[in-house]
Nucleic acid binder design. Structure first.
Lengths: 84, 84
DNA sequence: TAGTTATTTAGACAAATATCTAAATATTAA
DNA sequence: TTAATATTTAGATATTTGTCTAAATAACTA
């Protein structure tokens, strides 16, 4: 839960998640969308990955990232228990 | 959205929110539940308040805090748009 | 009014975080 | 094999954050 909130507590990472909602993208494509260096984006991707929010798959010299929405179930439930 | 994620990105603050889910409590009662100084708890309450997650009402010399679940609607929607 | 209790504000400090550049690693192509 | 491209790792640095103690503010009580 901690790593999930931590991962989402950054505007850039939330935007990455929103990008990956539309379609899978490789690290370079993701980096292009931001005015941030590639190493920094790589670091953000690592944090999202540790939180299980995204998965990665090596495809040749590229690394393709995908959104993993199943982990959001936990977050959803946490919020719902507060609301009822 | 930023202040909301920021507010929830701390275990102590999430626990405060969970406490207030059960019943309204004043600052002292909340502080008793943690091994953290009262000023620190006060600071956490301030962050939760700025995020609109809680409201406060002065009652004599006490300050009573309540959970505001309506702001969670935004968070819920943000997550739901990712899932579908 | 003076003392006590409840809470917040101020200021300091250590730890965590986001960012950068430079270098390393891995893969493809000539 | 050498060069080029994609990505990550390493190390540095400035900013943010969570915590503390001491002091300030506010409200009750004797």
């Amino acid at each position: 839960m901690n790593s999930l909130f931590k991962a989402l507590n950054d505007e850039t990472r939330r935007q990455i998640v929103e990008l990956l909602k539309e379609k899978d993208m490789n690290a370079g494509e993701i980096a292009e969308r931001f005015n941030i260096s590639k190493p920094s984006i790589s670091h953000h991707l690592d944090i999202l990955k540790r939180a299980d929010l995204i998965t990665s798959e090596k495809k040749g010299q590229f690394v393709e990232y995908s959104l993993n929405t199943s982990i959001l179930e936990d977050l959803l439930n946490w919020i719902l228990t507060l609301k009822k």
